[in-house]
């Protein structure tokens, strides 16, 4: 693998060709926040918290560092004013779905809940880590996305769950460790692994999420358990 040189926040950084900016930065101990990234799973580019600025002379471009490949001579800013503002806005938005975002992250960018926003406290930020781990790493397909746009959500497919979950991680269910919000392990309605059950009985994964689409599916016997 060829080596390339790039500049991150004014610092010379060496990286292997084929790496993403995020990987190169992490190797050089430069902080870039992420919520949908995990080293063991393919990059996904959904949370956009990892956006950075690429500088070319006077021009700049905002890219997702988890996906953008390193290249010789790249000039990257990870904490410019613009990027910090964007991250604050993104975190403010995410707070409407998950109010326990780690304090340090919120403080770093000055994020806070905005009373003008509509709340949708599902505790699922749709990072897809559980779905991707289950599908791409375990080949189990217990979890999946349904719907699109603002009603997209993660659901459990009970038949598959019965088949795979009891043996996954010796009954521990490995996907739990990948959920950044911890919602799969949480115990809001007396369900979930904390109560000794293999997976929340109730789909969706994120128990507080009750949207029309599921009610409809349930009514006609789709996803029947």
């Amino acid at each position: 693998m060829a080596e390339v040189n790039l500049v991150i926040n004014g610092e010379q950084v060496r990286a292997q060709e084929g790496m993403s900016i995020l990987e190169a930065a992490r190797e050089a101990d430069i902080f870039i926040p992420t919520l949908c990234h995990h080293a063991e799973i393919d990059a996904y580019g959904a949370c956009r918290l990892c956006v950075v600025e690429l500088r070319q002379g006077d021009r700049s471009r905002v890219v997702a560092s988890c996906l953008y490949p390193v290249a010789e001579g790249l000039v990257v800013e990870t904490e410019s004013e613009k990027i910090k503002n964007y991250r604050r806005t993104i975190l403010n938005l995410l707070l409407q779905r998950w109010d326990n975002i780690p304090r340090a992250l919120l403080d770093r960018y000055g994020a806070a809940p905005n009373p003008r926003y509509v709340e949708n406290m599902t505790f699922c930020i749709l990072c897809g880590l559980c779905v991707r781990y289950c599908r791409d790493v375990k080949g189990a397909n217990v979890l999946g996305f349904i719907g699109r746009g603002t009603i997209r959500q993660v659901v459990v497919f009970p038949d598959q769950a019965m088949k795979y979950c009891p043996t996954c991680g010796n009954g521990e269910m490995e996907c739990l460790h990948y959920c950044p919000t911890g919602v799969i392990t949480s115990d809001y309605q007396g369900t979930g692994p904390a109560n000794g059950q293999p997976l929340p009985h109730a789909y969706p994964v994120c128990i507080r999420d009750e949207t029309n689409i599921l009610e409809i599916l349930e009514r006609v016997g789709h996803l029947e358990y």
Partner: peptide, 12 residues
Amino acid sequence: LPLNLIYNVTTF
């Protein structure tokens, strides 16, 4: 094909 993919497509 896994059922989760079928549901993903049909609800998309």
